[in-house]
Simulated scan of single mutants.
Amino acid sequence: GEVASAMAVETLQRYFQTHWREEELPDKETIREGILEANQAIYDVNQKNARSGSGRMGTTLVMALVQDTNVIVANVGDSRIYGYTRKRGLEQLTIDHEVGQREIQRGVEPAIAYARPDAYQLTQALGPRNNNFVNPDIQYLEINEDTMLILCTDGLSDGGLLETHSQTYLHPLISSKANLEQGLTKLIEFANRQNGHDNITAILVRLKVRPNQKSIMS
Rank of each mutant, 00 (worst) to 15 (best):
S5H: 00
Q40H: 13
T69A: 07
D27T: 06
E189Q: 12
L151V: 01
I200K: 11
N46C: 10
E181M: 10
L65H: 06
L141Q: 08
L187K: 06
F16M: 08
P117W: 07
N130M: 00
P172F: 03
S5D: 06
L180N: 10
M148L: 10
Q182T: 09
L122Q: 03
S52G: 13
T153F: 02
K87Q: 09
I200Q: 14
H165V: 09
V134R: 05
P211E: 10
E103G: 03
L162S: 03
T164R: 06
P211Q: 12
E109R: 11
A115R: 13
G183V: 01
Q213P: 07
R129K: 13
N49W: 12
A64K: 04
L184F: 11
D78T: 05
G34E: 11
V62D: 06
N46A: 09
L156W: 07
L173A: 01
L161R: 09
R210S: 10
V3L: 15
Q101P: 02
T60L: 06
V71T: 03
V99R: 13
N179Q: 09
A4K: 06
T201E: 11
G34P: 07
W20T: 00
I216H: 11
N131S: 01
Y15A: 02
I150L: 03
P110T: 08
R102Y: 13
S218C: 09
M217C: 02
L180E: 11
K208P: 02
I143K: 01
D44T: 14
E29N: 15
Y84D: 00
N130K: 03
E10N: 15
G183R: 02
R21N: 09
N192Q: 14
R14Y: 07
E98F: 04
R116I: 02
S215M: 09
S52C: 12
T18S: 12
I81G: 07
R14T: 11
N131V: 01
N70A: 06
G1Q: 14
V66M: 09
V108R: 15
E24K: 12
H165L: 11
I143C: 02
M148G: 03
T11Y: 12
L184I: 08
N70E: 10
D78S: 05
T123W: 00
I81W: 00
T11K: 15
I104S: 05
T11V: 14
K28C: 10
L180A: 10
